[in-house]
Design a protein around this nucleic acid. Structure first.
Lengths: 189, 189
DNA sequence: ATCGTATAATTTGGGCCCGAACAATTCTCA
DNA sequence: TGAGAATTGTTCGGGCCCAAATTATACGAT
C-alpha cells in the first residue's frame, strides 16, 4: 500500500508534467483517496475476518445483501451488491456449492430466480457480522463519530452525483456518437 | 447502482436483525460508502474517458504511475498502483503489447525490470489526463473545494490507519495462530 | 569459491469482473 | 390471439486479482 507522501508527491509531479494545463487538485485527491481507501479496507477485511472462512469480499457482500433483505430476486442482489448480473451468477454458484445460499424459482414469474440463505449461511452471518463491524471500526479508528458522518456524507454525494447525472454526462461527452464497444467480450456467434 | 435510500434501509434492517448486538453505525456507513463511491467512480471513468481508448481502470492507473514517476522498477509501480506484483506482470504485458509501455533490464541488478512509457504512451497520457481530471471534477461536483479537502483528509486517515496498524491488528486477531491459507491458489508441485 | 539467504519478477490456480450475446418468459397492443 | 417488444438470468470471451510456488540474480559469510 503506497504511503500518503506519494500522493502529495504525485500531485506535484503531475502538475509539473502538465505544464500550463490547470489541474483540479482537490477533486483529484478525493478520487485518488477513495480508491486507495477502498483497496486498503478491502485488503484488511479479506485478510482478517474473511480469510478464516474462505470468503472473498464480493462473496461476503452478496451474503450480506441476502441476509439483510431476505429472499431476493437476483437482479436486486446484483444491484445492491454493486456487481453485474453476470458476475452474480458466478458468485451465487460458488456460494450455493458451499451450502450457504439456495436458489428457488419465482412462484408466478418464470424468468426470476430467488436467492436466500441456508441455515448454515444464516448462522455464518450471525457469527461473522459482529467481527466484520469490529474491523470497520478499526479501519476508521482515526476518525471520530462526527468525522465518520462527515466523510460518509461527502461520499454519499459522490455516489449520488454519478447515479443521478452520470448517464447524461456520458452521453454528452460522446456528443451523439455511439459508445465505443468493449474490445474484449463475447462476439456474435 | 444502488440508491442511498437502500444504505439507510440496510442499516436499519441490520440493526433489527442483530437484536441486542451493538452496531457501530457511523463506522459501517463510512466503509459502505467508500466501497460504493469507489465502484461508482470507477464505473463512470471506465465508461466515459477510458472506454474510447480501450483502457481498464487498472491499466490507466499503471500508465499514470509510470507517467508521473518516469521509468520505474516494477515493484515500485505495483506498490504505487495498489496491485500485486503478479497482477502487474499481466497488466504490463497487455500494455506492452499495445505499444504503450516498454520494459528494460536494470543496468546493474539483473533481477530488476524497468518500465517506461513509449512515445505513444506519453502522447496518450498527455491527451487523456485532462479528460480524466475533468471527470474527477464531475464526480465530485456536489462537493465544494473545502468539502473535497475534508473528505480526502478523512480517507487519508483510513488509509494511514490500515497501513500503519493493519498488520499488527491482523496478527492480534489471530492470537498467534498461523494465518489461514487461501483455499484457491497455486499448490506445491 | 561456494554455500546459504534475501530479494526480484514470473508463473500458476482458482476466482471475480464486465458487458455483449443468448435463451426463456412475460408483457403489450393491434 | 398472436406477433413483436421488453425483461430476466445465463453463457462466454478477454482481462484483472491475489498469494503461493517457482526461478533467477545478488550478496554475505565462511
Amino acid at each position: 500500500m503506497p504511503g500518503q507522501r506519494s500522493i502529495a508527491e504525485a500531485e506535484r509531479l503531475a502538475a509539473a508534467r502538465l505544464g500550463g494545463i490547470p489541474v483540479r487538485h482537490d477533486q483529484m485527491a478525493v478520487v485518488a483517496n477513495i480508491y486507495r481507501a477502498a483497496s486498503a479496507v478491502r485488503q484488511h477485511l479479506e485478510n482478517s475476518v474473511l480469510r478464516g472462512v474462505d470468503l472473498t469480499w464480493t462473496a461476503f457482500v452478496v451474503l450480506w445483501v441476502i441476509w439483510i433483505w431476505g429472499e431476493s430476486e437476483t437482479r436486486h442482489v446484483a444491484e445492491e451488491a454493486g456487481i453485474s448480473k453476470g458476475t452474480l451468477t458466478g458468485v451465487a454458484r460458488t456460494l450455493e456449492s458451499r451450502g450457504l445460499v439456495q436458489r428457488a424459482d419465482h412462484p408466478t414469474d418464470g424468468r426470476l430466480v430467488l436467492l436466500s440463505l441456508t441455515d448454515e449461511g444464516e448462522q455464518l452471518m450471525q457469527r461473522l457480522f459482529p467481527a466484520f463491524n469490529e474491523e470497520e471500526s478499526f479501519v476508521t479508528g482515526q476518525l471520530s463519530d462526527a468525522d465518520c458522518q462527515t466523510v460518509a456524507e461527502g461520499l454519499r454525494r459522490v455516489v449520488l452525483q454519478v447515479e443521478e447525472n452520470g448517464e447524461k454526462r456520458r452521453q454528452d461527452l460522446l456528443g451523439g456518437a455511439a459508445p465505443a464497444p468493449r474490445r474484449s467480450g463475447r462476439r456474435k456467434a
